[in-house]
Amino acid sequence: MSRIAAFIFRRKGRNGWHWTDIVTWIWLVGGLLIMFGPAVWLVGSSFKSPAALAEFPPTILPYVTQKATVEGYDKPLDLYDATLPDGSKAVLAEVRRIGVISQMVDPEKPGEIIKVNISQRTPVRTMAFATTNYTEPFTHFDFVRYLWNSVFVTVTATLITLVVNSMAAFALSKYEFRGRTFAMLLILATLMVPLSVIMVPLYSIVSALGLFNNLWGVILPTVATPTGVFILRQYMLTIPDELIDAARMDKASEWQIYWRIVLPLTAPALAVLAIFSVVWRWNDFLWPLIVLSRKELYTLQVGLSIYSGELNVQWHFILAMTVVTMIPVVLVFIFLQRFITTGIAGTGLK
């Protein structure tokens, strides 16, 4: 640990490389590879054809073996650079392989079979992006449906969260009434009741309300977030009460005070909560898995996990759809990271 301590004491302008600098950069570069590497690898792999995915060792970029249609053969044949027994080289198409011997034809002279040892041939490869990995799940599977379900759940839940939480935060920050402290404590106590503890009875309540196999059954239990109420309330406490009094003197109704004075002034905190809510709801997994059992209602997360759990995993589709699932969160990360990191540092919530 004394070595780590030395990091803190590094000063700009120190000459040369201290060993702690080396450790720092090893840690940072290693972190870069381990943190970003897997995602980059995923994106790269998602453009590979099933055949390329099955290869070992894998290539970093997506390659496919070139094919040629040869007269007299129904299917396109793979092309190889082959070294002929006489030492000359030629581009040949493989008809079939028997043991270590490959039977090949020259695409120009399809009649004549040439036998080549498989060690004497290498496939002709070109880089190709298998965009069908992306297009097919959307046309042949239900992924458009899943995407829509996820978007619907995320947007609706976030909007309701913002409205409902901000109303509660307004009441808890700008009104004096009996039981205010109790209500606040009750909301904070919810932090102690995570989903994993109440999923059995929650499931029965959602079923009793007729919300089983219903997207609203996914949305409603998530919207009264204690953290949301908490950050909004903390922010609203900083709005001077005189503003509220001024609005009352200006003949504003309480509802108007809420949405024309308090809400606009809480915009920064609302933005943070909105970002968090979008990420939370988009990523929700266990609860949708419990509530949604009909395929056409799956969210992306549920759909992905179910497909990836099947015996015959079609990795090329799974990888592509994983990338699609990642996109909104990555966008949030790129454009709104600053909001989130300051939000977390400020409130310690996730």
């Binding site: 940072l28 897997p38 995923l42 997994f285 994983t322 699932t325 990642m326 990360f333 989130i340 990191t341």
Partner: peptide, 24 residues
């Protein structure tokens, strides 16, 4: 930038995390 590097996986969904590593 470095802070972002280490923070990046936090936003990924557990399903995506699971699948990425299952694949790796």
């Amino acid at each position: 930038f470095w802070r972002a590097v280490f923070f990046f996986p936090v936003l990924l969904s557990p399903v995506v995390v699971g699948l990425i590593w299952k694949w790796i």
